[in-house]
Design a protein around this nucleic acid. Structure first.
Length: 277
DNA sequence: ACCCAGGTGGCTT
DNA sequence: AAGCCACATGGG
């Protein structure tokens, strides 16, 4: 393991980053507030001591990890802007002050959030881990456990549905194989696309609806205008603003008008706050 | 036995 | 457009 130390890190808390629902492959395995995970083909053990981020990694430059943890972005500025347009979310921001949106691999996000539908987070994690164990590459052992990469699109596209069924992915098996095939054919929707076009392109995937599409926009290409509405966010919007649980359109419009280009960031603070209660 | 989880597809009004 | 229901799995 190489050690990378990054000083003067603001607006960061590892639990907030890794438990806010944006990723599924990082865990506090030792129960000491440090997190172990995999990004690209690198294993990482992350610790945060005051404002010093200490990363023990098997690869990746400091620039890679700065990028991954989004350390070149000023989240204090995000918080100020959100509070100026919607002061009511202050408790959520205070609670999740250390959330940062990771720069994750697009394909991993695509598949992970297909798995997430109508599923709970502990089981989503198990499902994704078994996908990696079965189809990913061995990266080496750390902390007594073999670590794996997230599989390449080619590998999942060539997997059989019945094979995937053994991983207890349920009815999502077919979605996964078809999504990998489509991704290979079409690639990542183009950077020149608008949010609306990108969203529409994602909806053409079998097994991706509006909620998962918004998660992929937010976590896969970091389009912060996306505001994913799941069962938790419905409860939040009902609780804070009195929206009917069925009024998704109203909630989307509210987010667009009050959170604007930072909707996804606001959503993360709210989601983390309410799930913790 | 029932309900729920970072929902979606498909069919019926 | 809106309202149903089935879908596979495991935990509470």
């Amino acid at each position: 393991m190489n050690r990378i130390t990054i000083d003067n890190v603001k607006d960061m808390n590892l639990e907030h980053v890794f438990e806010c629902g944006q990723c599924f492959r990082w865990n506090d395995e030792n129960g000491d507030g440090t997190y172990i995970g995999v990004a690209s083909s690198h294993i990482c053990h992350a610790k945060l001591e005051d404002d010093r981020l200490i990363l023990d990694v098997t690869g990746g430059s400091e620039e890679f990890w700065r990028d991954y943890f989004d350390l070149n972005t000023d989240y204090s500025e995000y918080k100020r802007r959100l509070l100026s347009t919607e002061p009511k979310i202050e408790p959520a921001i205070v609670n999740g002050y250390g959330i940062r949106i990771l720069r994750q691999d697009f394909f991993e996000v695509l598949i992970s959030f297909i798995v997430s539908q109508n599923n709970n987070i502990p089981r989503i994690k198990k499902c994704i881990e078994s996908i990696c164990r079965t189809y990913g590459d061995e990266l080496g052992e750390y902390n007594g456990v073999m670590r794996y990469s997230f599989p390449a699109p080619e590998v999942l596209a060539n997997a059989s549905v019945s094979e995937l069924a053994e991983l207890k992915l349920g009815y999502r098996c077919e979605y996964i194989v078809r999504a990998a095939e489509q991704f290979l054919r079409e690639g990542k929707p183009d950077d020149s696309m608008t949010t609306e076009e990108f969203h529409k392109a994602l909806l053409s995937y079998h097994g991706i609806g509006p909620k998962v599409a918004n998660c992929i926009l937010l976590f896969g290409i970091r389009d912060f205008r996306a505001f994913p509405i799941d069962v938790w966010v419905k409860k939040i919007m009902n609780d804070m603003y009195g929206f009917e649980l069925s009024n998704i359109k109203g909630m989307q419009k509210f987010a667009y008008e009050h959170f604007g280009e930072l909707s996804g960031i606001a959503q993360q603070y709210l989601f983390f706050y309410y799930r913790g209660k």
